[in-house]
Structures are given as structure tokens and as C-alpha cells.
């Protein structure tokens, strides 16, 4: 493919390479998106920096009860991690349905969101957990709320010279639950026609205190369904509440027609999948004693 290959050993080295080479330098983590683009000649790339050799980016643990996911952590590492399985189910379900097993052993969660595909499998989950993205440059470091991270199809909101080093997911208290459902005609190795994640936190009486819903492949970026969430907060689990949330979510989205599905179908599926994923998240919240 003929590009210059850099493999920094530290974050400092990585950000100084980014500074030095400017926009010519492309960050490669798993490579499963970047290399396909290069092979398809969708982009021409002269310099690539592989960040998976940086030990600091290989963190995956709980820090002050927040879950920290380093930029070199792969989808399958997420899927197999016991804390993720226990507390961040939607993320496990999103990561577990991305590409093939082979791709999941290469692709990273951070890479998935930096690539900013509207259908990114892990994005809805990170949106409902209100993850924070840490971006580091030569000069400083900042945190970006995940909802502000996506800027358009294939576009993120990083400034030139910035490198995402990690994601932080807030600690999950008891009586909370989450889920992600991906809809695709093929049951493996497919792109989401619609993907929806939901997060629900309940009070002791079983009323919803926090509800977050996020969707993929229905707008130029992965998006929250803020209005649908409002219909759920304060409510108890009923068929009507779920149906109403689905209906509102379907009104909030701006899907397109493409090779995979029509806009109409996507909109209908947002309604169905939102209802289903919300119910699953709710049941999990009821059953959780974390």
C-alpha cells in the first residue's frame, strides 16, 4: 500500500509525530477501516502512525469506578471483559456484533468512534453511557462529551494534532440496565440497517429516573433520541410507554435511503427496535443488584 509507517512507543511521541507531520499523518489502531479505504483508493495516505504499540493505550479497567477503555483496546477485549459483561451490556452487545471475529480482534472501540460511521456499532452504547473522550495534543488534554464527538458521516470533532487516548464510562449504580440491538439482514458480518441502544435507571419503586436512547444508521451521525427519552423518564414499565418512546424516536430520526434499506424502513425499524431495546434494558435494570 506504500505508506510510511510509524509506530510510536508513547503518547508523547505519538502526539509530537502528529504535530510534526500535520494532517498528512493518519492514525491507525486496528486498521480495519483505514486499510480498506486505502485499498479502495477512497483516500490516499502517505504516512501512518500505528498506536497499538503504546502501553498506556492498552488500559482496560475500573478507575474510581469509571470504566477506562484505552485507545488500543480491541472490540473482542471489550466483549470478553467481565466488568463490561456485567455492567455495560449494551457496549458488549455492540462490540460483539461489529464485523467478524477476525475484525473484532483487530478493530478498536476508539477507532470505531473516530471513524465516525453513522452505523458504528459501539457508538449508540457509548452515547447512552455518556462516555467521555479524552483527546491529547502536544499542548494540552481535554475531555469531549461523546454526544459532541461525532461531526458528520466519517467526521469527528478532533482538532488537528489531537489523539484520542481513552474513553471513560461513568460508574453504573444498582438498578440500571442497558442493551443494544442491531438490525441487519445477514446475521453476522453485516452493517447495521438500524442499531439502537438504551439505558435505564430505576428508583426503588420501579420508576424510571434516567433514560437514554441512542441510535445508529438513522442520521448523519449516531444520535441520541432526547425526546423519546423524556417520554420514559418518570414512567413505569408499560406497553404504552415503550410504544410511545418508539413512536417519538421514529419521528426524531433523519434516515436516508441507501443500498441497505430505504429511509421509510429505517424509520419504522427505529420504532420497533427502540421499543424492544428499551424493554430489554428495563428488565435488566429490574434484575440488577449491582
Amino acid at each position: 500500500m506504500g505508506f510510511e509507517y510509524f509506530r510510536p512507543g508513547s503518547v508523547e511521541e505519538a502526539v509530537s509525530l502528529l504535530f510534526e507531520h500535520g494532517p498528512q499523518m493518519n492514525v491507525l489502531a486496528g486498521g480495519t477501516d483505514l486499510l480498506v479505504k486505502i485499498k479502495h483508493k477512497a483516500i490516499h495516505v502517505s504516512k501512518v502512525m500505528d498506536i497499538t504499540g503504546i502501553d498506556d493505550l492498552r488500559i482496560l479497567n475500573e478507575d474510581n469506578q469509571d470504566l477506562i477503555i484505552g485507545a488500543a483496546i480491541t472490540q473482542n477485549e471489550i466483549v470478553r471483559h467481565p466488568i463490561v459483561a456485567q455492567k455495560y451490556t449494551a457496549l458488549k452487545e455492540g462490540a460483539g456484533q461489529l464485523g467478524s471475529r477476525q475484525v473484532r480482534n483487530l478493530a478498536t472501540v476508539v477507532g470505531n468512534i473516530c471513524n465516525a460511521s453513522p452505523s458504528a456499532e459501539t457508538a449508540p452504547a457509548l452515547l447512552v453511557y455518556e462516555a467521555k473522550v479524552t483527546a491529547v495534543s502536544c499542548r494540552d488534554s481535554r475531555e469531549i462529551a461523546i454526544k459532541d464527538f461525532f461531526a458528520g458521516p466519517g467526521k469527528n470533532s478532533l482538532a488537528p494534532g489531537e489523539l484520542v487516548t481513552k474513553l471513560s464510562l461513568p460508574a453504573e449504580p444498582a438498578r440500571s440496565g442497558s442493551a443494544y440491538i442491531k438490525l441487519s439482514p445477514r446475521r453476522a458480518m453485516d452493517t447495521a440497517v438500524v442499531g439502537v441502544a438504551a439505558y435505564v435507571r430505576l428508583d426503588s419503586a420501579g420508576k424510571c429516573t434516567i433514560c437514554r436512547i441512542a441510535m445508529g444508521a438513522v442520521a448523519p451521525t449516531p444520535v441520541r433520541a432526547f425526546q423519546a427519552e423524556q417520554a420514559v423518564i418518570g414512567a413505569e414499565l408499560t406497553r404504552e410507554v415503550l410504544a410511545e418512546a418508539g413512536r417519538i424516536a421514529a419521528e426524531e430520526v433523519r434516515p436516508i435511503s441507501d443500498i441497505r434499506a430505504s429511509a421509510d424502513y429505517r424509520r419504522q425499524m427505529v420504532e420497533v427496535i427502540t421499543r424492544r431495546v428499551l424493554e430489554t434494558a428495563w428488565r435488566r435494570a429490574e434484575g440488577s443488584n449491582k
Binding site: P185, R186, R187, A188, M189, D190, T191, I259, R260
Partner: peptide, 28 residues
């Protein structure tokens, strides 16, 4: 039966990868 479809747009085949021209996997 379920998903194979070599789609044409303006005379050009747009199902040009095995991601867009889907054949069954072991779980299908």
C-alpha cells in the same frame, strides 16, 4: 432467497464488495 442481490444503479453494479453482496454465513 433472503439477501443476494447484485444491485445496479445507473447501469453500474453497486454491490461491489462481499459486505454489500451478502452471501450466507454459518449463522444464517
Amino acid at each position: 432467497a433472503l439477501f443476494e442481490d447484485l444491485k445496479v444503479k445507473d447501469g453500474k453494479i453497486i454491490s461491489n464488495t462481499l459486505l454489500d453482496y451478502k452471501i450466507p454465513t454459518a449463522v444464517d
